[in-house]
Amino acid sequence: MPRLSQWFIRAAFIYLLSGFTVGALLLAHKGLPLHPALWSWLPAHIEFLLFGWVVQVTMGMAFWILPRYWQQPRRPNPGYATIAFVLLNLGIWLVVAGTTFRAGPWFLPAGRAAEGAAVAFFALHAWRRIVSREGT
């Protein structure tokens, strides 16, 4: 497993734990009320699990197992995938700042833009690796 996939997947595991922790508190709060302010963490719960866990673990796996080239670099343009990793994680925290922490009206759109750009950079990296065994 390449180093960048390890970064994606370890980060995804941390978001899985964070998302499940917030989710467990929210679910328990539905049954046995804990604190009314907990509901402000619902957007963070969704963000951590959809983008932090599902999208990030998928990107990490894809960077690892999509077909590689016969010659170096085996995975073309790895810099694009690295940028995707940075932008995705930046985007997640901008969205959480804009929703759960109400940091300001521009945090949410900036976060979504960063997440969208992350997907675009990852697609730029992966596109040419989506091929048959014959390379077509």
Binding site: F20, G23, A28
Partner: peptide
């Protein structure tokens, strides 16, 4: 039930 469910999934 929901508190136990939350704990088990966590």
């Amino acid at each position: 039930l929901l508190a136990v469910s939350a704990l088990l999934q966590w």
